[in-house]
Design a protein around this nucleic acid. Structure first.
Lengths: 187, 187
DNA sequence: ACCTGAACACCGTTCAAGT
DNA sequence: ACCTGAACACCGTTCAAGT
């Protein structure tokens, strides 16, 4: 790939992140191209369509998620496994809250958006399963919790993050879910 | 309103429900009009725009939610308050799961969609507050749970309902949340 | 009063022409 | 190889003409 092409690729992603961050709910491809300083044709040369562009944003976000999960695993066993898991989920939610582009992609994205991040999502599942296993072993996480429940509950918290209301607070939502995950004290 | 106009109004809502139920993610206004047997102009005579149409679908769904909450209140005190609340939430989630049109409206709707159902949502909040109060009184619901958390967690479960994945199960999600809501046994 | 559908606007996507 | 932007397709919405 030529140097100018690579630069354009980066500029397009950056322009998308900027425009979504500026608050409009959706952003036209035309506008993303203009902000990136390229023609629409160039945008479509780099990304098959809008879903592919959003897929790349999702992919980058999963790289961050996975780093948070790896940090959590690295903190074991000094940190109790449930607390390490809870911290990683709080970090992931915060990272989504700060990135309007990914949030839009998560909420409106069809299958093809997530297909672009399949490898990273696989790694996410593997790391989550490891962490969930460790937290169950020490009896801090309820025994019937499944690793696949992690993406599911995160999806729920994301929905709250994405539609802020005066009397909603996604941190409360997450803490409530964490509380449901925590094992009850055994008699 | 003339009889034929009233019939058209009903037909349009019915057509929208049908088409969304048939599985496409979104449905063009043109297609809704055709299915209802009217011109697009007529559709726009009955509903200011697409959001207003979806708002009416949301409004009807809230009528069902409120009925479920009233049933729960009527079952007190024979039924324990927390169980009555849990049943109502399960019924509401099931009703959303069976209505693709409302689900789409909930997930993609902007403020204006919910504005159309403002009165019904107010009643929902009132009923939910009453039920939450009763469940706290008997110590079955955790004391720091707020009535406003009900719509918030339901929004999270809706997100799971709306994007089914092979290893996700919205009923599990709801039960997990309910488990987080339940008061811990006091020492 | 209410209905109709051609026409317009907006935005995702393509492609012939350029460097 | 890569870039450009005019052109096309699709869909939400309007409005002049009809009953």
């Amino acid at each position: 790939m030529r140097a100018d092409a690579r630069r354009n690729h980066e500029r397009i992603l950056e322009a998308a992140r900027e425009l979504f961050a500026e608050g409009q709910h959706d952003v036209p491809m035309e506008e993303i191209a203009r902000r990136a300083g390229v023609g629409v044709g160039t945008l479509y040369r780099h990304f098959a369509d809008k879903e592919a562009l959003m897929g790349d944003l999702v992919r980058e976000r999963f790289l961050v998620f996975n780093e948070n999960l790896r940090d959590a695993l690295a903190a074991l066993p000094q940190t109790p496994a449930f607390e390490a898991l809870a911290l990683a989920l709080r970090q992931n939610a915060t990272s989504v809250a700060e990135d309007a582009a990914t949030r839009f992609a998560f909420m409106t994205g069809e299958e093809r958006v997530f297909a672009a991040a399949a490898a990273e999502m696989d790694e996410f599942r593997t790391l989550a399963a490891e962490l969930v296993g460790r937290a169950k072993e020490c009896g801090e996480l309820r025994a019937d919790f499944d690793a696949a429940d992690i993406p599911m509950v995160m999806c729920g918290v994301c929905a709250t993050i994405d539609r802020p209301k005066p009397d909603w607070d996604w941190r409360r939502h997450l803490e409530l879910v964490l509380s449901g995950m925590r094992a009850r004290a055994t008699g």
